[in-house]
Design a protein around this nucleic acid. Structure first.
Length: 297
DNA sequence: TCTTGTTTAAGAGGAA
DNA sequence: TTCCTCTTAAACAAGA
């Protein structure tokens, strides 16, 4: 396949799945979220192949956005003009691909809803009732909140994200594919997936919602260990999405603790490859801009 | 009317 | 062979 960045994609399909392309587009902007039209624009600007048959691939792309849990929809503020919502990457989706191939993921990213339901089924009924009550509360909050994200809000406190390179940043994806040994590349991705800055965006954009949701979600038995990884769950609490989400392997990987131990046993296990030193609160030394979408080859 | 978003379905191809 | 991911198509609803 031709290398990106050399104007060789004019008539060939780029070696990236729609998920990758969408993720690149989202990551290319400082706010880490884009409306659908901007995602279209990004892809067409960078890959002339997609200037044709727009209905076809745009339909596919929309399908991917809706179907894949790795993309989260962020509603506009009521006073914010424009059509459609913003789309962002799920904070825990950085570890989806393998072997340097962005055509095919190693596993499908899936929100942990089923696991939570299973957990609830094993819990006392009163616990389940309480949980559902909390969920209803959160949905109402999400639906009625007037403090919805705004681009300007996201710019505030984005200093960290301006220095952070998500694994889906286009320069990471493209540079990695042709420069970095696969093993290094993906250990890097796994590390970086722990420090995705959505947490900061959300706390900035939805401070009251954020706090309320985290408080409300806490009854789902987050264990004491969870404090270490607090960022991960908090970052998930927006847009009514209140359950922890992880890349769930299709074939379950053996875990030291069973599901019956509760969700608290899973959070640390799937984050075990996320060194605390890379937490979003840690200063990062990489100061290159993630907003430059062109590959640096 | 057009865009956006959701859902379902089918087929191709890769991996185990 | 089976399971899974990805792509494509299509229908439909809601909103600007």
């Amino acid at each position: 396949m031709p290398r990106p960045g050399r104007n060789t994609y004019s008539d060939q399909k780029p070696p990236y799945s729609y998920i990758s392309l969408t993720a690149m587009a989202i990551q290319s902007c400082p706010e880490k979220m884009l409306p659908l039209s901007e995602i279209y624009k990004f892809i067409m600007d960078r890959f002339p192949y997609y200037k044709e048959n727009t209905q076809r691939w745009q339909n596919s792309l929309r399908h991917n956005l809706s179907f894949n849990d790795c993309f989260i929809k962020i509603p506009r503020r009521p006073d914010q003009p424009g059509k459609g919502s913003f789309w962002a990457l799920h904070p825990s989706c950085g570890d989806m691909f393998e072997n340097g191939s962005f055509l095919r993921r190693r596993k499908r990213f899936k929100v942990m809803m089923m696991m939570a339901q299973e957990h609830l089924a094993q819990s006392k009924q009163s616990d389940a009732a309480h949980y559902l009550q909390q969920q209803a509360k959160l949905r109402i909050l999400a639906a009625t909140s007037t403090h919805m994200p705004q681009m300007s809000d996201y710019n505030v406190g984005m200093s960290q994200s301006s220095t952070f390179k998500h694994p889906f940043a286009i320069e990471n994806i493209m540079a990695r594919e042709y420069k970095v040994p696969v093993s290094l590349a993906f250990s890097s991705m796994q590390s970086m997936s722990a420090s995705y800055p959505v947490h900061n965006q959300l706390t900035t954009a939805w401070p009251h919602m954020y706090n309320t949701m985290v408080d409300s979600v806490s009854p789902i038995s987050m264990g004491g260990d969870y404090g270490t990884y607090g960022m991960q769950l908090k970052s998930l609490c927006h847009g009514g999405q209140t359950l922890p989400a992880i890349p769930v392997p299709i074939k379950p990987t053996p875990t030291p603790l069973g599901l019956s131990a509760g969700l608290s046993s899973h959070i640390p296990s799937f984050l075990s490859n996320s060194p605390q030193s890379l937490s979003p609160t840690s200063p990062r030394t990489d100061t290159s801009s993630p907003s430059s979408p062109l590959p640096s080859l």
